[in-house]
Design a protein around this nucleic acid. Structure first.
Lengths: 250, 250
DNA sequence: TGAGTATTACTCGAACTGAGAACAACGTAG
DNA sequence: CTACGTTGTTCTCAGTTCGAGTAATACTCA
């Protein structure tokens, strides 16, 4: 036994202050042109009856795996069954205010999930119900979840600018107009169709043409749009700048 | 007693899986034109004798407070004593691989600290020594700290583009050339002096003139430069784009 | 069939960028 | 003290990108 092995064998984990660690997931999708977030209604205390972000305690798994597991439990989807695999998942940040949970010290690692239109969720084990809500109608949330949601929206809006994240909200094949609708929904403002078109096609690696066109035009007319799929770029250069941002944001 | 109070009174914190939570700090500063990171040499197991990021277990405090405390303990500086108050501190992300610490499940919340030139640190309680090391000479680190450092550098380099973060590396009053040296050190490439000057002054809220000039020119001549202080912008619009980034970074 | 709408392409002036030059102010080697 | 090299600052200029608007075309719906 080496000195280090000996040390580890005699190590007492209880000697350090212990806290609980949860993951909370801000899952975003777009429905009917509006950005929606997945919420659950809490069944038990604390905050019984309140809306909250889906989440739960971390088990013997990586943080990423915990987030994906929680998302699957709340939506009723399973990894390997298609839709959940196309979800883009990334860590947002951690929240550790000592009083954020009245039970005990709980540190939450928040995750951000972006998904194409998912089916309506069914209730998970830890919640009496889960549902998609437009982000501007989320209202008051349990714990500090309203602040987490606000941070998540900031992050999502910013990431649309310099990453191809928008492609995570649409299907495998999509039109430029669908992509533009994603930006409009997340940023909350319309974009100039012509300039958006030019810009998206000019950024290398953002989208690549499938060579095909959609079988049908939009609901209200117009030519059959061309189809694209996501390119291989991880960052957009140059970025798609958000319009009408005032000078010197503070 | 309300129903919720009753629930909380009978609540057993031990019922949930418990893990240890630490904060690790990636403290960056610039010395002699090179970007340095603060490292400690571990005194005890595991990884005795290895270099590591300064950090420790979270106590009854916010995560931000824990990071600031750890930074103070390793550098020997105390909050309220000037230099430590000008440090910019922000959360990087959390690392929770179940095997990242051989003792037990430890989740680490990593922080990023940017500071103007700090004095040489003196040893803290949990480390037999602390020192500034050029980031490209950090070498192998304990735990997953090398990965954390890499993520931190990515973040720092990116944030220089769209935030006034560079002002956190210089003194209260600084010259445009000092600011340019920060960008050069972090990005690892020289910038066109004239264009940088024009750009910095044109971004609203980045810097504001003090109306004064430095008492002395640089070591090797030149006119006395004008002095500036940080403006009130939190984001740079338009951003300072990093040069020579190839098309379609992937 | 006609009206309305949407995709896509094109135009034009304004703004921005990268590269370089010019100039004056300064430190230092000789 | 002088000459020279270095540096901060301002300008110029051509190429590129951006925002806003226009136009041609193709489709849906009534």
């Amino acid at each position: 036994m080496t000195e280090e092995e000996e040390f580890l064998a005699g190590y007492d984990p209880g000697a350090f202050p212990s806290v609980a660690v949860t993951v909370d997931v801000v899952a975003l999708t777009i429905r009917e042109g509006r950005l929606h977030v997945l919420l659950v209604e809490r069944g038990g205390h604390p905050f019984a009856g309140w809306r909250a972000l889906p989440g739960g305690f971390v088990q013997e798994e990586t943080l990423d795996a915990a987030a994906l597991r929680e998302l699957g439990e709340e939506t009723g989807l399973r990894p390997g069954e298609g839709e959940l695999d196309r979800v883009h998942l990334e860590q947002l940040r951690s929240y550790g205010n000592p009083r954020r949970d009245p039970r005990m010290r709980v540190i939450s690692v928040a995750y951000l999930a972006f998904a194409p239109r998912l089916p309506d969720p069914r209730a998970g084990t830890d919640a009496s119900g889960a549902f998609w809500v437009p982000v501007d109608e989320a209202g008051e949330l349990a714990f500090d979840h309203a602040a987490i949601l606000a941070d998540a929206l900031d992050r999502a809006r910013a990431k649309l600018e310099y990453t191809p994240l928008a492609t995570a909200f649409v299907g495998e094949e999509f039109t430029i107009a669908e992509l533009r609708a994603v930006y409009a929904a997340v940023w909350g403002e319309e974009l100039h169709a012509g300039n958006f078109h030019r810009k998206v096609l000019s950024v290398p690696g953002f989208v690549e043409s499938t060579g095909e066109t959609a079988p049908r035009a939009g609901e209200r007319g117009g030519p059959k749009p061309k189809l694209y799929r996501a390119g291989d770029a991880r960052l957009l250069h140059p970025a798609l700048l958000r319009p009408t941002r005032e000078d010197g944001v503070r």
